[in-house]
């Protein structure tokens, strides 16, 4: 199996009230030097490997499509897809 991680973050120009609330709470707890917090989502996809132990370019493109279609809303969020090495065989 190959683990692919999709990170979804609110676009920089979109107000992130949750991140703001977390940031405020950290400051109240006494953690110094927290300038800003943004909260996003992390998806871990376990995918069957192609021949060898990796993912073909087509499969990876498919994950991009998953991220753009369902996992994120491109109007308000950016996403990043990366293959995590060392996933269980």
């Amino acid at each position: 199996m190959v683990r692919v991680v999709v990170d979804v973050m609110p676009k920089p120009e979109i107000l992130d009230p949750q991140g703001k609330a977390v940031s405020g709470a950290l400051v109240r707890l006494g953690f110094a030097g927290v300038a800003d917090v943004r909260q996003g989502k992390r998806f871990e996809l376990e995918l069957e490997a192609d021949e060898g132990d990796g993912l073909s370019a087509d499969r990876l493109a498919e994950v991009e499509q998953m991220a753009a279609t369902l996992l994120s809303n491109p109007v308000i969020e950016d996403y990043r897809v990366r293959v995590e090495q060392g996933a269980d065989a």
Binding site: P10, I14, L15, P17, Q18, K20, A21, N73, V75, I76
Partner: peptide, 10 residues
Amino acid sequence: PGALVRNDHQ
């Protein structure tokens, strides 16, 4: 077009 996100005051 556009999207609806969490209220600014949470």
